[in-house]
Design a protein around this nucleic acid. Structure first.
Length: 111
DNA sequence: CCCTTGACTATCT
DNA sequence: GAGATAGCCAAGG
């Protein structure tokens, strides 16, 4: 492990682990929250190196689409996990988050 | 060193 | 809105 990874990974794990169920964050947002702006491309590596299972599937692209190739095995898994938490999709794009604090909204969706 | 590779982004057509 | 393009940055060959 390089010194960079030691500090970077730790912070990224911490941020990703803190994403609430039913919500998502972009790679860039995670990097920024971890204190490493412009390191979006490093985030996936940090997650894959985590010794503990992380809610990796809550991290998506800045345009709210999933980072895997549409239709791939990984894509379907991530989409399924997110849907389990109440995340809604419009095509391949995630619909902006249901502030999961109201039962009516959870049952009926935003609007 | 130089080049390529990513679970990326912002910007311009 | 879909492509293309140019930045981005650590790692590994």
């Amino acid at each position: 492990m390089t010194k960079f990874q030691q500090s970077f990974d730790q912070k990224v794990w911490q941020v990703v682990a803190s994403i609430p169920s039913g919500q998502v964050m972009g790679y860039g947002e995670v990097a920024r929250a971890a204190g490493f702006p412009r390191y979006s491309r490093m985030v996936s590596g940090a997650m894959s190196r985590s010794p503990e299972p992380l809610p990796w599937y809550r991290v998506v692209r800045s345009d709210r689409t999933l980072a895997f190739e549409a239709g791939s095995e990984e894509y379907r898994e991530q989409a399924q996990l997110l849907k389990q938490e109440g995340v809604r999709f419009e095509g391949n794009k995630i619909i902006e988050q249901p502030r999961g604090d109201n039962l009516d909204e959870i049952l009926w969706g935003p609007q």
